[in-house]
Amino acid sequence: MAGKYKSRNKSIAEQVASMRKKYPQFTVSFSSPSSMKVIGMLQPTSRSISYQFILKYNLTDYPKTKIISPTLHKNSKGEEIPHIYTGEKLCLYQPKYFEFNRKDFLCDTIIPWTSLWLYYYEIWHLTGVWLGGGEHPKKLNLF
């Protein structure tokens, strides 16, 4: 049953195959039998530049996406880029809502979300506001 296929965890081989099928222009490779790497270009709007990204994924960790070029930068007011983890990894989804889980294909989730993230990143530069919504981790008040 199709539903059954949909609802089971995907192997790295399945992730690699689906990524190659949907985005044949990306460079998709196995880093080990249980991990993979994708390098490609994404352009969020027709008036935007193209950004090169790298996506690394292994079955025991969250997928990690980084923009390789051009370098992401603070806005003209010197404010830090929103929705980014240390190491410049993009915060694309809220882990506690399982918006991505091992049953999902990366090509249907992480890739479009990266494009969306880039769009809101550009709009943040233009308007000074992150218009894509989202959540921020609660800061612990130690005092």
Partner: peptide
Amino acid sequence: LGVSRNTGILSSLSSVGAAGIKTNTFFGE
């Protein structure tokens, strides 16, 4: 909202060659 498979450009889902986007919540600092 969809995303073009050739470029990553955001488009309406009815566009040719566009794939849908699952709901997400941007998280982090």
